[in-house]
Design a protein around this nucleic acid. Structure first.
Lengths: 204, 204
DNA sequence: ATACTCATGTAACAGGTTACATGATTTC
DNA sequence: GAAATCATGTAACCTGTTACATGAGTAT
């Protein structure tokens, strides 16, 4: 129900094709609303049918035709009304966390590798976010932009995306440290204690 | 596809009814995998049919019968194998962020109220997480638990949940500050500057 | 040569959401 | 007396995912 509004709010940035939106969703909106290109094309058809966006076909010379979409007046009003309604609680689906939850009966080495990949991903996202941030700010310093800018919404959600990925990195560092210590212990269980059972990845 | 494993990993904690799982998902697993009771009942039927969990019916005196579920040997092996596979990238769906993205054309007052609600929610989650944390630690200090505990997985995911909600609060405080300053400016646009247009919620 | 980008689309299926239903028990 | 808890279930609908298809142009 509110992929709809994610699309409308993305179109606040200006006219875009389905393909453009797919990229926008990939680099910035995905930060709070994930969607595949297929979902977007389906949604754009619906929004056009409902008159919330206007479509025009642009013929291109050496490329397939494309449809460019803009927010209609009705779409803008619908979006404004949406901001008033009570938001649904956020839904998070993170398979990595399911694997971490089960790390004690699973393959410790594999889970650690997954965490490292997640951290690489986070670093990549942060680099792209930083570029988006500079682009949004333009020539202004953050304080001026936030005080006087016309559209701060995208910047505020970007801030959340940045802190989310930073937190991923911090968490990942801590967890790797913990799991590595346990794996090392399990490899050579010297002396005392009830060492971590199964922490190195044995299946039974 | 991996609500399945979220359920299996929740059952690592021990036998539970569908109703129990609904509560567990509500208080801790929802932190990385949201699911409604209906999804859980459907999934439990499937997992039972596939032999990944064992069900037994417990007759109760003054309450409806309940089915209690436990991980089967096959289920545990499947879960272990799952930890090795490449996780899908996380998907986040946060309606509040869509509203924040559109705050500049929407109702500023309403959006600020939504952010405050989110912050209250975060405070509630943190209080519950803190209770879960103490429960997991038992008598041990964090360092001892992490070094020697048998099952650290749930603790590690809990840490992520805690930092997520703390980050929600920090972000909320910052954003409210920014939006309030803009709303105040728009209310009495004294002197210079290109004050924030529409920041107080006018529809045009 | 090969792969990637641009640009869209269909179809089938799996998964998630909402509404409704039942019915006794316990707590406020 | 009303509301919440325990404990499940059906059905309909909406969303999300995956696989596949097309076809020219550009970059390596």
């Amino acid at each position: 129900m509110s992929l709809k509004y994610a699309v409308l709010s993305a179109l606040l940035e200006g006219e875009a094709s389905g393909y453009d939106l797919a990229k926008i969703f990939d680099v910035s909106v995905s930060n709070f609303w994930a969607a595949t290109p297929q979902q977007l094309y389906r949604e754009l058809d619906r929004l056009t049918a409902d008159g919330l966006i206007d479509a025009r076909v642009v013929a291109q010379e050496r490329r397939p035709n494309k449809r460019m979409f803009t927010l209609s007046v009705a779409g803008r009003a619908d979006l404004a009304a949406f901001t008033q309604r009570q938001p649904k609680p956020l839904a998070l689906r993170d398979e990595l966390m399911v694997k971490v939850q089960a790390v004690d009966v699973g393959e410790g080495d594999a889970v650690r590798a997954h965490i490292e990949e997640r951290m690489d991903w986070a670093r990549g996202k942060l680099a792209r976010y930083e570029r988006v941030r500079r682009h949004l700010l333009g020539e202004l310093g953050e304080e001026d932009f936030l005080a006087d800018g016309e559209r701060v919404g995208p910047y505020l959600t970007l801030l959340r995306g940045i802190s989310f990925e930073e937190e991923n990195l911090r968490w990942g560092r801590r967890v790797l440290e913990i799991l590595e210590r346990r794996a090392a212990r399990a490899a050579q269980p010297s002396g005392s204690g009830s060492g971590p059972p199964g922490a190195s990845g044995s299946l039974s």
